[in-house]
Design a protein around this nucleic acid. Structure first.
Lengths: 190, 190
DNA sequence: GGATGTGAAGTCGTTCACAGCT
DNA sequence: AGCTGTGAACGACTTCACATCC
């Protein structure tokens, strides 16, 4: 909306785009503050700034990818990270063949692939706060342990495995076949 | 559990693995029927069969991938689909360079990449029920329209765009930066 | 004895209706 | 007049406690 030159937006418009009710949009936003103007709507620019602030996107998040298979490689060359405030600043694999030479060339600055044994040092040096696990399921918990050991507070787990971490650390699952299962359920129960 | 030879499992065990309470596991399962045995627990084999039946995974789901970039390619060579009852039986792109020759060779039977104009015929011939959108955001709605036109009832959208479809069709978003935003929120509000 | 299944109680989130601003 | 913000009503989900069954 900001790019398209939109100045104001109403809760009804937002609701349409988000597949929810207008009530909900207003209630949810009001939980964090009063961002709109009665009789007018929400100024796009202000609302965007507030939402970014709420989500914690007013800073750069430095991330590491562990497991440079198909998915890991795709993430390394994922350009839209730049639009958001996310940045992959390190990549790791256990396979020496991948470690030697493999880099992500599509972004401005290539990221070389390091051996997994170097996670802890790299996390410290490069101020990494989020780890993306893209290993096979069998290695996910091991990698999570390594990340916790390195004091990476947030983990986004793409592997099809439930991993556990100590109190104070956050894991989110981004495993798409769960969503696919949900889709299959909806399709077969109609 | 089934592979590890587990015969029975309790709601407490299941809860631990799923990061929920045991109450919840029992309540949720009981919604669909009585699958457990009082004083014993749930027989792993029976429970698995019931859950698969509930989710609609007791049949093969035939899928198409549209957009053969990094992510699309990763999906084409994703081996774990075979373990579940999902199968990619068609791939499409708009770029002739990708259409010519590009195939997924890692699975048993390669899937050749077709031009997007051939979606409708392929969906009919190959009995495709689910479409995976892995195009850039700008093309996601167009592709969704094509899939709806071809009467693909379910869409899993990996593109960072909100797409809309008519009543009777189901869209699920599998866009990981939403989860990443959620993670960033949790990390910055502690 | 021990674990499930389930009404009832409690909590949380959504919807409503309208007061409050512009 | 129009749209947001919000207490109150409503509905849904979660938790509890215990009856039930192996």
């Amino acid at each position: 909306m900001e790019k398209n030159g939109g100045r104001v937006v109403s809760s009804v418009e937002l609701a349409g785009k988000c597949r929810v009710k207008a009530h909900q949009v207003r209630k949810d936003l009001s939980y964090f503050g009063e961002f709109g103007i009665r009789g007018v709507g929400y100024y796009v620019k202000d609302l965007l700034r507030e939402i970014k602030r709420i989500l914690g996107l007013n800073k750069e998040w430095r991330m590491a990818v562990i497991g440079i298979g198909n998915l890991g490689s795709a993430l390394l060359s994922y350009k839209d990270f730049l639009k958001q405030n996310y940045k992959i600043v390190a990549a790791f694999d256990i396979d020496p063949a991948k470690v030697i030479g493999r880099v992500s060339e599509k972004l401005g600055k290539p990221v070389e692939v390091l051996h997994i044994s170097r996670v802890k040092e790299a996390v410290k040096e490069r101020k990494i706060e989020i780890g993306l696990i893209t290993t096979p399921a069998s290695e996910a918990q091991n990698v999570a342990n390594i990340l916790v050991e390195a004091e990476v507070k947030g983990i986004l787990n793409f592997a099809p495995a439930q991993i556990t971490v100590p109190e104070g650390y956050v894991v989110k699952d981004a495993f798409f076949t769960t969503i696919l299962d949900n889709l299959a359920y909806l399709l077969s129960s109609t």
